[in-house]
């Protein structure tokens, strides 16, 4: 039986315009056999969670390079839980100080990928940690 494709929402929360990583990973995820929805820029946490709901996503990937991760990332997790989407794997990346990572993980972000992470590592982590519905 063919394996069900992993569905991932790649999202840019806030006003940050740095989307090189988000677009690059969208292509890499698609090549790795995932179904990818890229939201584009200027997403509120509500918009991202709505996309996850509509698309029946397995994973939400958040990208932020403007220093707003401590606000946006936990907010997305919180809203997902409120919509009973607590099973969705949430990962993040961007310019995120290492010392912020323990708190983000405690708040439900499964992993944070900083600059220089190989794309294989990211794809590998998602495949290993995505929860079956």
């Amino acid at each position: 039986m063919a394996e069900k494709k992993i569905k991932i929402i790649v999202a840019k929360p806030g006003l940050d315009g740095h989307d090189r990583g988000a677009k690059l990973l969208s292509r890499i995820f698609a090549e790795a056999g995932m179904e990818v929805v890229y939201t584009g820029l200027r997403q509120t946490p509500e918009m991202i969670v709505e996309a996850a709901l509509q698309e029946d996503a397995d994973v939400v990937g958040l990208s932020s390079l403007s220093g707003v991760h401590n606000y946006f990332f936990p907010k997305v997790v919180e809203l997902l839980k409120a919509k009973k989407l607590g099973n969705v794997l949430v990962v993040g990346g961007g310019i995120i100080p290492l010392e912020d990572i323990p708190t983000l993980k405690k708040l439900g972000i499964a992993e944070i990928f900083g600059p220089g992470t190989s794309t294989d590592t990211i794809v590998g982590f998602i495949k290993a940690n995505v929860k079956s519905k």
């Binding site: 806030g14 006003l15 200027r42 509120t44 403007s66 606000y71 946006f72």
Partner: peptide, 22 residues
């Protein structure tokens, strides 16, 4: 900061978390 660049005041909902950041 990004709100100024995107034409929003600091108290606009889209400015949440961004004020003075970059």
């Amino acid at each position: 900061h990004l709100p100024t660049q995107a034409g929003y005041d600091s108290d606009h909902p889209l400015s949440m978390g961004e004020v003075g950041k970059v």
